[in-house]
Amino acid sequence: MNNTQIKISTKNLNLYYGDNHAVKNINIRIEEKKVTALIGPSGCGKSTFLKTLNRMNDLIPYVRITGDVYFEDLDVYKDYDIVELRKRIGMVFQKPNPFPMSIYDNVAYGPRTHGIKAKEILDEIVKSSLEKAALWEEVKDRLKQNALGLSGGQQQRLCIARVLAVEPEVILMDEPTSALDPLATLKIEDLVHELRNNYTIIIVTHNMQQAARISDQTAFFLHGEVVEYGPTKKIFRVPEDKRTEDYITGRFG
């Protein structure tokens, strides 16, 4: 039974920073409720590409985008309200960025922003989001404490809980473990493993083992292009392209 559906797809997607052609002609189809890993050397455009999906590049001046991004068959840049889009496509950043407020307020920030005011409902959302992010047991007794007092790994899981609280369908993760120690990294990986049942996850990572461990599909980026895209097992065992093989076996560094 193979009833996978395409959640996000791009068509001839290009992105320029001024004169710099950072993302080149990307055509990719991302499946629903799968983990898709984007790998490649630094500066290959994978993070930039990720940010085109929820239009975070809109914040940067001098960025020009051509081509289309489709989210459930509608054009991200034409058919969606940007706020609605970002509500449905959440994002976790490279460096944990909790707001300088309490743990509770961090998680409740999104729902509050979207108009939920009732205390009971917020309490419920905060609890379930923290549970889903595997953080509830660690913080349930200190929800009122400042989030900046948490460890780096806890902060990152808090950021994931914060995203889950607005009930997105897709979660973009931009090297979520690169600022964390190995133990905290493992916890996040376990968490991704749990979340794949309910969310479509796209994760940018530098860590080959991580991509191999947690993803279903892998795309290899080089110089702004997708060199190879397919099931993770295939990419790591029998890559079709010589450059993919070189990178995976460590010859690109």
């Binding site: 929820n54 975070m56 914040l59 706020v83 609605e84 889009l85 970002r86 509500k87 449905r88 959440g90 994002m91 950043f93 460096k95 960025n97 909790p98 707001f99 300088p100 920030y109 999104g110 922003t113 979207h114 950021c159 914060r162 995203v163 607005v166």
Partner: peptide, 18 residues
């Protein structure tokens, strides 16, 4: 105020003024 705070909030679907 770090840019990451603004990014975090916008990525949650908050508007600019929110």
């Amino acid at each position: 105020v770090p840019v990451s705070y603004r990014e975090g909030s916008l990525a949650l679907g908050a508007t600019k003024f929110q």
